[in-house]
Design a protein around this nucleic acid. Structure first.
Lengths: 143, 143
DNA sequence: TCTCATTTAATAATCTTTTTCAAATTCTTC
DNA sequence: GAAGAATTTGAAAAAGATTATTAAATGAGA
């Protein structure tokens, strides 16, 4: 997502229009790699550039950016949705390490599940298209 | 969890009392293995035996049963919490296969992550205590 | 049985997310 | 660049899940 024109084309393919609000929301997410921003955090950050934006617009925009695979929705079981920029533009999200003591979130960038997925597809007659994996435990600081 | 006496002892260890409502909620979950019941579904089923139970009591009971590792909370990203009986009484839940077409949920009973976890613990200096794994895709019927 | 802390049902409150709707904006066509 | 049709927006209300409050009821030990 280098420029605005590209975003405009992608939106148009789905029948959506390019608005300053949509541009601002995507910008905020792209400017915060690895941050796992909550909707509320995104709303607060977007309001700096876009003071009149409504929370509902942020929710709506996050939905369509997720649908377009530009961003990824993350559920960390803490009661709110989080989002991050989908760098690889694929539909396999990376895995997350979540420290149950301090709440720090780390990312596992390698995709280690390939052999396991092949095994499951065979054993369970199931075609896997995506996965979500979270590891809970203690980070080096908290241990 | 064979009998009431055992539940009573386990509750007492945490300073809780045994009530008919708590017994009924656990019974419903034990009677529906592999069903991934939502809180609302549990509420409806419990009301058969326990017509006056309040929804808040179901929520509270599910919390303490989860805390006691008697049941397991499952988040399938569909906007509500689900629960199932923790057969193995350990803190590692099994993995879930979720059909994105029909919504069917299957379980992967083997724990296939051991070698991956060892790798991550070494690479990321992180002590893993639990994991949550969901595979999304198409079941044999929908494919 | 008595006592006291816990638990309950009902209700209100909270929190996140979605819907509604009139006004504003985008994009296409001229 | 203006006009028109459809989409999008902000504000507020609504919805849905979960939690907190509170007086009354109940459980468990003495």
């Amino acid at each position: 997502m280098d420029n605005v024109k590209e975003l405009k084309v992608m939106l148009k393919e789905k029948g959506y229009k390019l608005t300053p609000q949509r541009r601002a929301v995507l910008n905020i997410i792209m400017e915060n790699p690895g941050k796992h921003l909550t909707t509320e955090e995104i709303y607060d950050l977007v309001k700096v550039q876009c003071p009149d934006i409504g929370l509902a617009t942020v929710y709506r925009t996050l939905q369509i950016l997720d649908e377009m695979d530009l961003i990824m929705k993350i559920n960390l079981d803490d009661g709110c949705s989080r989002y991050e920029y989908n760098v690889h533009q694929d539909d396999h999200e990376h895995h997350h390490l979540i420290c149950t003591n301090c709440g720090k979130i780390m990312e596992v960038n390698e995709d280690l599940l390939d052999s396991i997925e092949a095994q499951i597809e065979k054993d369970y007659d199931f075609t896997i298209t995506d996965h979500k994996v979270k590891f809970f435990g203690l980070c080096s600081t908290c241990r």
